[in-house]
Design a protein around this nucleic acid. Structure first.
Lengths: 337, 337
DNA sequence: ATTAGCACTCTCGCCGTGAGAGTGCTAAAT
DNA sequence: ATTTAGCACTCTCACGGCGAGAGTGCTAAT
């Protein structure tokens, strides 16, 4: 267990290192915080903190940097959150409410805003119903033998699909078919949609119904992510050499928050989870931290996250992720049902 | 005017430099191509080529590298295109036909494929009708006082929007309203949609009609781009220092092919345009080349492009961009009307 | 328990230097 | 008149050495 003084020193090391990106020396702490104790005492304490695994130093005579464990302790016990200032809120809310356009534009904008708020990469996933249910399907004639299927889900998401027809059809026939299918499939989710398809005969109608079913399933799975702020994150000094930067670009481009939604499914809304360095099962992201929060409610839930080097301003990042998540939930609720 | 021998030398310099990314020496040319003439002769010719502006050298005693003009001449007069091999085609077509999902997934996949084909950044814009026309609008009840508007365009694009209702409505009422609006607005484009709105009375109905109008206009403007292959491009040796790489990431993330569609509108389909270095009006992209091609037809046209350093394998890139563009046009035609 | 003092370690930026690569020029050869 | 051999000259780049500086760990004194 850490003494109060050790905790205090760890806290200062983290704060200092987060700010400067330079290993923190005993001397620097004394100077910056006008401590009453000498640098030698700090050195002794630091040696103990290092023995316990909270900090390391890169080589014999450099200052100390926090380890993953050190950050973890900091986040858990030491950190005081930096509240989101009123004018920050105002700008964000102004921008977020203003957007004219679809869900996707809105999500993409949210990622942009969050990334500029925290100076790191921000990722937002589409909100996703626990089980997507069909509200309505519609068929539109594109040409004599092709039709466009538009499947609308409970939560307002839409999936479109182009269908080749064996038999030429008119818009009237398509309307009739849509009405039949809606009667059959309305409210169906991915689990039971296949069961409802029995009894259909016309092959084109069967094909259409299948396409509806596939649309529902795709939407259940589709976990499109919106990512922004790569250039922000890359400005951090940890990427001051080319290989690391290239590595970072590759990792982040590919990173799809896969599984994060699942893993946070038990979290209650409002809680924000922090994954620090090695704690991330994804190798290759072990120098990174992820701050992730669910947004929405049980009907439609998504994930919003910030990704950055472990040396991250957790104090600022965590409350801002939480704030954006709750704001998104709120807007979705106001606008949705 | 260049003599045959000068052309030949320029061609060799470009080929060599594109391959190795190292300035090309007179000696290297003689060795690699087993030339009958001596390196001194090559040096004389190179000096002339440099005086004419086709090549430069970075410092007194380095080899030569092509200038923008040199690349231009190469592309125009010297280059023989590297045909897209049969198995390349097969893999591409296999991947492209296989995708199940919407237009956006398809476009995004296309960008991925093209980028891996040429090892540089690939960008694809959504196909865009010269003037989007409304085919069909649909209203879906989300709750007692909110409705979802889905506007479907001629070319299959869809725009969705959530509408607050002053008066509570049922799905039946919404259907009736949709039918009225479709009668009124079907075939309308951004230019004349406003004129058709006269005579509506119910404020909710007016609001809905306005929303349809806005959807049409948004779609006319919406020029979403799909970009992939950043990490590929960044592997090029021109980005071997951090500042350049960061600069590149920032530029490319922001690059939206703005205006490229307009500027290529006179090009006939099948032609591929190459913009080399300084020729690009966009400052900050002046070390880059863009190979761009229109795809689709007059009804629905988009742009597909590859962006990379001026030292680009034009021989391979140009035919591959053209191939992908024509393939996209073909698939759109098969599937569309 | 704290602290002053000091030896020790390691990094990092700087400088000089020499090898190597390549050119341009001159003068000879074709 | 063109080509070529030869050579002086230029510039880069990798390498090693070196010294300053920063910081620690330890010891001995407080």
């Amino acid at each position: 267990m850490l003494t109060d003084r050790q905790s205090a020193i760890l806290g200062m090391v983290v704060d200092e290192y987060v700010e400067t990106a330079e290993p923190v020396s005993s001397r620097a702490l004394v100077d910056r915080h006008r401590l009453e104790i000498s640098s030698a005492t700090i050195r002794n304490e630091m040696a103990r903190l290092e023995r316990e695994g909270y900090i390391t130093h890169p080589y014999t005579s450099a200052g100390r940097i926090p380890s993953d464990l050190g950050y973890r302790f900091y986040v858990e016990a030491l950190m005081s959150e930096a509240p989101v200032a009123l004018d920050e809120r105002r700008t964000v809310e102004h921008q977020l409410h203003q957007v004219a356009g679809g869900l996707d534009e809105w999500l993409s904008l949210t990622a942009t805003i969050l990334s500029s708020l925290v100076g790191n990469v921000a990722v937002v996933t589409r909100p996703r119903t626990s089980t997507a249910r069909l509200r309505h399907a519609q068929l539109v004639e594109l040409s004599r033998d092709t039709a466009l299927l538009v499947s609308v889900m409970d939560d307002g998401r839409v999936r479109q699909r182009i269908l080749q027809q064996r038999q030429p059809v008119t818009q009237d026939q398509l309307n009739a078919r849509a009405t039949r299918l809606n009667g059959l499939l309305a409210g169906a989710d991915a689990a039971n949609v296949r069961d409802r398809l029995v009894g259909l005969e016309d092959p084109d109608e069967v094909a259409t119904a299948r396409a509806v079913a596939e649309s529902i399933e795709e939407l259940r799975i589709a976990e499109e992510t919106f990512l922004d702020g790569l250039n922000m994150a890359l400005r951090q000094p940890e990427f001051s050499d080319v290989d690391r930067m290239l590595e970072a670009v590759t990792q982040l481009q590919a990173y799809r928050l896969r599984g994060l939604l699942e893993s946070t499914v038990d979290d209650h809304v409002g809680s924000t989870r922090v994954i620090i360095g090695q704690e991330n099962p994804d190798t290759g992201l072990q120098d990174w931290s992820v701050v992730v929060s669910r947004y929405g409610d049980t009907d439609a839930a998504g994930v919003v996250a910030v990704i950055g080097p472990t040396r991250m301003a957790y104090q600022r990042t965590i409350p801002r992720v939480r704030y954006i998540a709750s704001l998104m939930g709120q807007i979705l609720r106001d606008v949705g049902q």
